[in-house]
Design a protein around this nucleic acid. Structure first.
Lengths: 149, 149
DNA sequence: CTTCCTGCAAACAATTTGCAGACAG
DNA sequence: CTGTCTGCAAATTGTTTGCAGGAAG
């Protein structure tokens, strides 16, 4: 029984295909992206990577992220004030649900978006490449705590 | 025949209501936001304002924008790499159509979004406050030019 | 008058870059 | 071996902040 290729597998394959080298540091970054449940920032990735490769610097993390972005293997969520967040599990455009209190980001199911995009492309004449749909709110957990923050 | 209150009017009223002072520099920033067709950045606002008030600094522009953000009279579109853009005409969440070549931003009509938001709030348990929906693509004009960039 | 605002300059923080040595292929 | 990658440190850039003098109300 063959196992389906994991995200890590496809990231590695893509990198090799395109002639990028698989260094231990790079591999460590890939693993964090492929396994992390949430949407980590560069610093969070760095913290995890440093456990296995203490010499790694944040610059290397950023450089790896840049490579992955350029080949479409990671989705970058930009925030001007806060640090950017990365999604290596679903590296394509999709909606996000962001709690403005705890900053947790989750992926809601929203079927109708594709139709909307298609219609918009047709009507506007734009060649649509990606989109970004973020909902900002207070997650149930933070509502319960209802702390003064 | 009475004229409907303009965006500038309502911005001014809101500021006065809340006890903020109307300085000439502030007024100039408001005017740019209320009249500008596009989605200017801080620097662009600054450039225009400086024509009438040469002593104005970019810090004052940012401080005014901060006030307006805090009272919900301007919408800030955050970009990590590029500078942020501001929308003073429609200071509430709405979709944007962004050309990745010329960086122009326009507002498409997309009716169905409200339903989507309502449904999501119900199903996720989040208290939804705002959202951000950005489509990135190549505008018709840039497609035509099809320049190497 | 008093408080808030402006202008200036310095501070910030996330991200990027240049370069010399290291190492994957 | 050779070209790419790493690690270090410095640079970048949009935005923010502190403070003293200025002006709105």
């Amino acid at each position: 029984m063959e196992r389906a290729p994991t995200r890590l597998d496809s990231m590695l394959r893509k990198l090799r295909e395109l002639g990028f080298r698989i260094t231990p540091q790079r591999l460590a970054v890939l693993k964090v992206l492929a396994e992390s449940k949430g949407h980590p920032g560069a610093e969070e990735i760095y913290t995890v990577v440093r456990k296995s490769f203490p010499t790694t610097t944040i610059a290397t993390v950023y450089k790896t992220l840049a490579v992955l972005k350029s080949i479409g293997e990671v989705l970058e969520l930009e925030f001007s004030g806060d640090y950017n967040r990365y999604d290596g599990k679903k590296p394509y455009s999709h909606p996000h649900l962001i709690c403005i209190k705890c900053k947790r980001i989750v992926d809601p199911e929203l079927a109708s978006l594709a139709d909307m995009t298609e219609k918009l492309a047709r009507e506007s004449g734009y060649k649509l490449l990606t989109h970004r749909l973020d909902f900002y709110g207070i997650c149930p957990r933070c509502q319960k705590k209802d702390n003064a923050d």
